[in-house]
Design a binder for these strands. Sequence first.
DNA 1: AAACGATCCAACCGCTCTTGG
DNA 2: TCCAAGAGCGGTTGGATCGTT
Length: 262
Amino acid sequence: MYWGGAMAGHMGQGVLEEEVWRKGPWTAEEDRLLVEYVRLHGEGRWNSVARLAGLKRNGKSCRLRWVNYLRPDLKRGQITPQEESIILELHARWGNRWSTIARSLPGRTDNEIKNYWRTHFKKKPKSPSDAAEKAKNRLLRKQQFHQQQQQQQSQKQQQHQQQQHEFNFDMKGIMALLDDNSHRAPYISQGRQEIVNTNSNITEEQGYLDTMLNCNTSPAETTAEDILWDGTLWNIDDVHANFSVASATNKTGLYSLVAPFC
DNA sequence: AAACGATCCAACCGCTCTTGG
DNA sequence: TCCAAGAGCGGTTGGATCGTT
């Protein structure tokens, strides 16, 4: 085995030497070693992977590299409007539970979603007009991007429609997930960092959907989300105003889904 | 063309949770 | 039951790139 020497050098118990782990950007060779190892032995036991593959990287670094970058099932490219809608909705539901959100977006990593959220929704805009303007511009750019893609893939139009269908199906699945007690999590409000009593008269689902729509919700339940949503582009009124320029998929994603609950 | 700010994204850090002995 | 190691998660950082002025 080519890693035998490295293995022997590390197998002794105790601290023979202070491990000096490599840090910083991964090289192509390191990637190759990691991919090769996982291909042969599978995921897991990351501290061993680091040693057995002959990498001077600690286990955490190896796992992170694999999960966020090397995994073959990763989906590359821009977050789609559909995915954005899902992220928004699930974040409203679960807060910063990125890994949980990521499970509803196959091929996307928690890190990716987290970065996307921080970039687009975390910061408070300087003013509401700025926010509206930026939202409009961003959505326009996105729309243009997707129009280009659709033109390039005109022959795949049917497939696109299939994707729309699948998206709607996904959303049904998500809503089903929300109904599933086994997946319930405490309703964590970012602003207050407190857990709302799940035994309150208003169910979590109702609270979630009400928050989504800014309707039929008492101030007590909306405070945290108001802080969050009022500070971003995604106050539902803004959504209504700005989505006149947004893609139809976004509209269906948000409105067709939640309208029946209002 | 240069400066500056915004955005993107890979990677690290510290903490918590899980699991096995 | 306790403890240590491994694994996973969320927060944060810093460099690269892009867009605007």
